[in-house]
Design a protein around this nucleic acid. Structure first.
Lengths: 335, 335
DNA sequence: TTGTATGCGTTATCAC
DNA sequence: GTGATAACGCATACAA
């Protein structure tokens, strides 16, 4: 149970017959050390199994070589079978691995969790912070930025903070989806909107509104929160209020999936009676019945690019204030 | 961009008119400090916005207050819509949040990634390591344990290492599933097995084998890797080899989902012609057509209990060598 | 090119 | 109860 005493720089130096400073140089890849000495040091390192103590290094360099990925969400929602958060995590993890940095994952659904994240990040225990999915007008990103801590948000901050952010082309994707419905002859197009305290929910709804309005069509809205349960409830609500609807755009695939089922239970055929389009293109979308037409967003890429942006910021580079990734309409059988 | 100089213990001490040691005591909740002094220190801390420097603390305490969650998987597979890994992450995150520790997430699909995890964890940059889903006979857990680093595996280590592990009752769950098929009159029961380099894949297959053998029924096996694609391929394979099969037990819901679709494409009705049972009970299982009968495993709980076990280990407690969580057969319409 | 000396911000061991 | 003071392990400015 008790680990052997861990070798330090000092031990390696003695073994190699040089000074601590020289060992440090070799370990950190300085080129100003004579080759034979480098070799001797490397051998001593190998023999002793020396591994640098990160804490000590951090203390002097002021860098932690780790970045925080903050998900201000109930853990329950972060890991539903919505693929959004896992996708972002995956993209971030890949990019950080390439940069040899650690990913510290912080869930902050509760107020206490949020406070904990605030303490940790303002305490500079990480070199940068990537926020996924902000709710409402969270002041934390701006606060961190003001402290000089590199921050990138996923989605435009709702409080108008001047924090660099990354997002997908929400409005463009929604517009293409609704236009596809219109072009295929649908005239009574409803939407199941996402939560209106999140920028993704807001923008997808306004994209719908603008497009149906531009076509002179009526607007029919029910609001959900991206989950299946909320999608089913919203679909029932829409059917009750507008029994003659002939198409539905749902702001998430999960809600679209639930709508598919709810429509069938109500005796409507998809796509004959009602066309359905979702948003996300999660893996399940290809396996629904019928397979779901949807707006694909490059979610892993979002995590990757966001992380890359953050790393550049942390490296002291100037970065663009926003980076928007394209979306794409994937046409399957539901519309 | 340049953050203000961060206040140190020294600054707080000056402000409160006491020594560094006293501030440290107050910050760390020592009770041996007079109340009025405590109050003064707390006020100085608040005024200066003091936050302890974790690196400095770690350097002296030898604790990092963070634990690593290692997923020796391709990132692609960690975050498919299989809910297993996200569920474990979620459980671990919840438990660590309660313990006020950080979660360092490490993906290690590639050999290079694996090496990186080895370096990081053997370097004692974390207080403990939780392994999810080992492939084959990975020697790393045993190596860490030998170094005295707290380790918990999710699933019995295949190399027979004496490392504490946590798992669900795989065999029990499979047995109940297959017995359910037998009890409802099925006699030609096939299985789509999971990957045979993972303990979950191995145990679910042997559970199937033992149960059909005990009932004097023939065994029909095709092997997948838990993904939908592999499930579809395996189902086709089974249909070709055993056109008269009347039931399928799939070792994951994803594979079961694909089997459902493949069976329909082959003109078989579920459950009339072929009964299907999955394993996992992911969220999608309730939304397949027909809704999937499956073996539920408490995946979030797995992450939680595993983390708890690890924290106890890290606290120097003796822990049980294995912890097995129950599984449950959820009967829906597919069988 | 290499070594010496110093400091990073804490906690812990002592005296007082 | 409180205050000096010595580690903790490393990187780096400076001297050689």
């Amino acid at each position: 149970m008790t680990g052997a005493q861990r070798p330090t720089l000092e031990a390696v130096a003695r073994r190699a017959g040089v000074s601590r400073a020289t060992v440090s140089r070799v370990v950190n890849g300085s080129t100003t050390v004579a080759e034979p000495i480098q070799e001797a040091v490397r051998q001593a390192v190998a023999e002793l199994g020396y591994v640098p103590n990160l804490a000590a290094r951090t203390l002097v360099t002021q860098r932690t070589d780790s970045i925080a990925l903050v998900m201000p969400e109930e853990a329950t929602r972060v890991f539903s079978d919505d693929q959004v958060f896992p996708g972002i995590i995956r993209g971030a993890a890949q990019e950080l691995e390439a940069a040899d940095k650690q990913l510290v994952l912080m869930l902050a659904g509760s107020p206490a969790g949020h406070e904990r994240v605030a303490r940790y990040t303002t305490g500079r225990h990480v070199d940068g912070v990537l926020f996924a999915s902000l709710h409402g007008a969270d002041p934390l990103p701006a606060r961190l930025a003001a402290l000089g801590i590199p921050v990138v948000c996923s989605g435009r901050p709702l409080d108008g903070a001047e924090v660099p952010y990354i997002d997908v082309d929400q409005v463009g994707g929604v517009t293409r989806a609704v236009r596809h419905l219109i072009d295929s002859g649908r005239r009574r197009i409803a939407t199941i909107a996402g939560p209106q305290d999140m920028v993704a929910g807001i923008e997808r709804l306004s994209g719908y509104r603008d497009t149906v309005a531009a076509a002179g069509l009526p607007e029919m809205v029910a609001v959900g929160d991206f989950t299946r349960e909320s999608g089913a409830a919203a679909m029932r609500e829409l059917l009750a209020a507008h029994p003659d609807l002939d198409a539905v755009f749902a702001a998430s695939d999960l809600m679209a999936h639930a709508a598919l089922r709810t429509l069938r239970e109500a005796g409507r055929r998809v796509p004959e009676d009602v066309a359905v389009i979702g948003f996300d293109d999660i893996e399940t979308a290809a396996y629904t019945d019928p397979p779901l037409t949807t707006v694909r967003q490059p979610i892993v890429e979002l995590g990757r690019q966001g992380t890359r942006l953050l790393l550049r910021l942390a490296a002291g580079e100037d970065v663009e204030p926003a980076l928007i990734l394209p979306t794409e309409l994937i046409i399957r059988d539901s519309a």
